[in-house]
Design a binder for these strands. Structure first.
Length: 505
RNA sequence: GGCGCUUUCGUCUAGUGGCUAGGACACAUGCCUCUCACGCAUGGAACACGGGUUCGAUUCCCGUAGGCGCUACCA
């Protein structure tokens, strides 16, 4: 059993954008597969034709491409166990449903959704199970000829799993240990619908995981209550000896308040809950994505990996390879984790710091261009090296350093009041004359010359530099002064100095 | 309601039958300094509660409470 080749799957429904919790589930599957030299399969669970959303599948695939989670097999990746889209596997499910029917493990039921609804309204806590099934319209309660008649006259039906009551069903979960439930609380789940000739999740899931040789099912905690049902299904098919091992992950919770993380939390608190921006084809509504919000994929991965799992040491910055090496299902936490978006922002900051200046400059270049500024990569890289530590997102770099490209039009009132004294104009004129006289405008030389001048004149360092800063930047921010003047050059520096003298007097 | 899962600083978490209960984010203060940041340093901050078991429980057991999930011809 332990010798089994690791094969895991991520199997979303194409019903909309991929939720960030789903991303984490996929990530854990990926880490687990890679660590064990196994395979990750991408399956599409589109058995509910009503909920199908065009574009969702492509969106999901694009999300993983951006995040660097790679699949070995599945929809668009190929493989031996295809097709990997459940809507294309009708014939397969049909065959296995028939097997269950033939073995008496399942039965046909004709109760319409309306009838069931009426029943639920009538009987409190009605459940379709061993205690009620004989009073319903199904192949257990009706005669064989009645059943045939109904089918032949075109009545739609479903196939239900016949759950035997009074049995203790045990699930050995890799994260939670032994979980036991009494089969009496399970209802006779619908496995198959004649209307669209498609199975429901439960049947398709078991058949596919079996046929695709899945060794471990790593999924969200919302599936834990139906895990015993799945065990029973494996048993009914006679597949218990190759049944995958289960691991149910805790859920992602709202940053504050009660409940699990939702799209609304993101809107309210200002962070995305989807990997990529999503344009809803029906409503036209746009939901923000991590990619478009300027998060680095490495930061998203690192943050998500640590939300519900911890290697047990104090190291927090981990690359995908580090994660693959360290990941351990048994160290996954059992309780839900609140989505701490402030920490994710910190991760983004750290990854900006970690990446080299050229990489950040390349990401920043389009932002600069969008402001109508043309500059060289060389110049931008220098600026980035001075400024990148100050921001959490690359786009914030523009706000932090636009003065390198655009001369101040106005001078910040408060800064003027504080930094521009009566004699500032005179001193700045002296400074301008000094700088103009320099043949060598290098940062080092300016620094040397200006310091000597300040000392010789007995001026204060602060009064000169702050006024100088106001002239070049327009407000009181930015790196060391000569890192500004040196980069914008002599001509521009003098022009800004003279304009400030003229305007501020 | 029923069933299941779960509970360490505000948040993510480490950890142990005896520890000053560790780290990170956030927060506060200080340092650095030509400004604003970054950075660095320091600080406050937790074992849900009640019973057991034990010489001793945050750790093991039981219960209570809170939280989360499921309870569809959705996944």
């Amino acid at each position: 059993m332990n010798e089994r080749k690791v094969r895991v799957r991520f199997a979303p429904s194409p019903t909309g954008p991929l939720h960030i919790g789903g991303v984490r589930t996929a990530l854990y599957n990926y880490l687990f597969a890679k660590q064990h030299g196994g395979e990750l399969i991408f399956r599409i669970e589109d058995t509910d034709s009503n909920r199908f959303v065009p574009g969702a599948e492509e969106y999901i695939l694009e999300s993983f491409r951006w995040l660097g989670i790679k699949f070995d097999e599945g929809v668009t990746f190929g493989g031996e166990c295809g097709p990997y889209r459940q809507s294309e596997r009708r014939a397969i499910y049909k065959k296995y449903v028939q097997q269950l029917l033939d073995n008496g493990k399942a039965y046909i039921a004709f109760d319409t959704p309306e009838e069931l609804e009426a029943k639920r309204a009538e009987v409190e806590n009605f459940q379709y199970d061993a205690s009620t099934r004989l009073s319903m319209r199904n192949s257990l309660a009706l005669s064989a000829s009645e059943v045939n008649e109904l089918i032949e006259s075109g009545h739609q039906y479903v196939v239900r799993f016949k759950v035997e009551p009074g049995e203790k069903v045990v699930v050995n979960d890799l994260i939670r240990g032994i979980v036991t439930i009494d089969s009496s609380i399970l209802d006779d789940k619908v496995l198959y619908k004649s209307a669209d000739e498609l199975p429901t999740y439960h049947l398709a899931n078991i058949v596919d995981d079996h046929l695709m040789n899945i060794s471990h099912v790593i999924r969200g905690e919302e599936w834990l209550p139906s895990a015993p049902l799945h065990v029973l299904l494996y048993r009914a098919f006679g597949w218990e000896s190759t049944m995958p091992q289960f691991a149910h992950l805790s859920l992602l919770l709202k940053p504050e308040g009660n409940g699990k993380l939702s799209k609304r939390d993101g809107d309210r608190l200002g962070f995305p809950v989807f990997p990529l921006e999503w344009h809803d084809p029906k409503s036209g509504a746009v939901s923000s994505g991590f990619r478009e919000s300027d998060y680095l994929p490495e930061a998203v991965i690192n943050f998500l990996a640590l939300l519900g799992w911890n290697p047990g040491d104090d190291v927090e910055m981990m690359s995908m390879n580090d994660l693959i090496n360290k990941f351990d299902l048994s160290k996954c936490s059992k309780a839900g984790a609140r989505f701490d978006y402030k920490k994710m922002i910190w991760f983004n900051h750290e990854y900006i710091l970690q990446k080299n200046d050229e990489e950040i400059a390349a990401i920043f270049m389009p932002v600069v261009q969008s402001h109508g500024v043309e500059t060289s990569m060389e110049m931008l890289t220098k600026i980035v090296s001075l400024m990148k530590g100050r921001v959490n997102f690359v786009h914030e770099l523009w706000e932090a350093c636009s003065f390198y490209f655009v001369a101040p039009v106005e001078y910040d009132e408060k800064t003027v009041k504080k930094r521009w004294k009566e004699d500032s104009a005179v001193k700045m004129a002296e400074l301008a004359a000094l700088l103009e006289s320099l043949d060598d405008f290098s940062i080092e030389n300016q620094d040397k010359a200006v310091h000597e001048w300040i000392e010789a004149k007995g001026y204060g360092m602060g009064e000169i530099m702050n006024a100088f800063r106001l002239a070049l930047v327009g407000e009181g921010k930015g790196p060391q002064m000569f890192d500004i003047s040196g980069l914008i050059g002599k001509e521009e520096t003098l022009a800004r100095l003279r304009r400030a003298i003229a305007v501020l007097g």
